[in-house]
Computed example of a mutant assay.
Amino acid sequence: MDIEQLCRAVRNPGDLRNLPNYVDAVNPAATGLKRVIWPYGFHTEIPCALTNCRTRHKSGVIIELEDGSISNIGNICGGDEDKFSTKFTSEMRAMSESRRRESLMPLLLDRDALQKIESDVRAMCDAANRWVRLNAAFADMFPEVDREIRRRIAVGASLTVAEDIERSGAEIDDIVASGRARSREEARYAQVAKGTIAGVPVLGLSAKALRSMEARTNALLAANPQEADIASLQKLFNDATYLPEDVQSLKRACVAGETFYSGENFKLMAYLPGAPETRRRLDRLARADLEDRSKQIDAKDLGIDHPTESGQTVRMPTKKDIKRQRYVDAQIRAAQQLNKKW
């Protein structure tokens, strides 16, 4: 077993002292640092091997000196240029980057796993494009209804719709007499819930999001992890980790489309505020009508082949999306800050 593997196996001060060529005292004026091998963390304190330090600590690093001996120093005093080599900072950075690479590489070198991700993304993007077209067709044919549904989604309002039913004279008299209404006009109509518009996650599908997924997949398959810098490597790892989750989100949105674009849902939409003619059209609407309209819409208007600034199909991020993106951004920032960490 080589020295690096032995250093990785160190679990306590006894293991440390048993390393080949270990010395417990290092005069920084007499010998230089060759490299930082591996960090350690013990339950009990041990002294720093630097003769100009000797601070007791629980966390530090195992080092190799230029004369081939092995020793240990604290990770704080090691960075003090008055106590040890200025090379310490760059060697700590190299070790940290090496450890991070080691944790990221297995997934990125698993070509079978990456090719499955690519296959799944392609299949789901193809399926989702159909619903992107239906979204565009629906917004084109019923712009007021589309805006109202999206408004309710954006502000968290209920998607339950109701019909105003005129009460009988006796019912109105009873309501006014019981004090439940201040006037007959106020008691004239009753709202009767008709149902809740379902399947709205399909409206989160957009051509822009699908293009982004495909671009991330292409970059993942084309990259050479062995040559990537640490920040790029972290981004590739994040994509390899989260693209399968994004595929599942697409799948759920496509399933939701079956419900949203159904005759039952169209009849519920007819109860939304709108012109009487719009209500009559929704009552008669079938998914096939939207399919026909979608075929008449140019691809560039959908943003499938060309970027678009249209806000009609912009996806509303969920709390989970926001939390995950913050985590991803933090990982990338950490990778980019390796030069400053130590």
Rank of each mutant, 00 (worst) to 15 (best):
T89E: 14
N72P: 10
L272I: 05
A215I: 03
S212Y: 06
R182Y: 11
V247A: 11
R17A: 11
N21Y: 07
L210H: 04
V155I: 05
T217S: 10
N27W: 02
L302N: 08
S212P: 08
C48P: 05
R326Q: 12
F84Q: 14
P13Q: 02
V61A: 15
L236K: 00
E91Y: 04
G68H: 02
T241H: 06
R150W: 01
A187D: 06
E227H: 06
K116N: 15
D24R: 08
I149C: 03
D140Y: 05
L268W: 03
E186N: 01
S212N: 08
R150C: 09
K341R: 09
Y271P: 09
D301R: 14
E64K: 01
S158W: 00
R184P: 10
R326F: 09
D82Y: 03
V26T: 07
N218C: 07
Q296I: 08
L203S: 08
L236C: 00
R152S: 01
E258P: 02
W342N: 15
R280M: 09
A136D: 15
E91S: 13
H57V: 09
L221F: 04
L159Q: 00
E4A: 14
K194N: 07
N12P: 01
Q325N: 13
A286Q: 15
E66Y: 01
P317T: 08
E102Q: 10
I172L: 08
E97L: 06
R101C: 00
I62V: 10
G14H: 01
A154Y: 05
A219P: 03
D146C: 12
T44P: 06
S119P: 08
R211S: 14
G78T: 12
A222K: 07
E91K: 08
F142V: 10
L134E: 10
A127R: 11
A187E: 02
L134R: 09
Q296H: 11
R184E: 15
D246W: 11
M316D: 12
N339V: 05
K87N: 15
E102K: 08
N265R: 00
D173T: 02
H43C: 10
A25C: 13
R130N: 11
L134V: 04
P13S: 04
R293S: 15
M213Q: 10
P201I: 03
A113Q: 12
A30T: 06
V202C: 08
K208E: 10
R279A: 15
S294E: 03
Q234M: 13
A187Y: 00
F138G: 05
I37K: 01
H43M: 11
N265G: 01
M269F: 03
V314G: 09
P225G: 02
R8C: 13
G68D: 04
S232I: 01
H43I: 06
R8W: 12
V176P: 02
E163A: 13
Y40D: 15
T55I: 08
L50K: 04
S85K: 03
R184W: 08
K116H: 13
A113R: 07
S103Q: 11
D289V: 04
P28R: 02
R150G: 10
G204D: 15
G169M: 13
V155L: 00
A177N: 12
L50I: 01
L16Y: 01
R133N: 13
S178M: 10
D140I: 05
N224H: 06
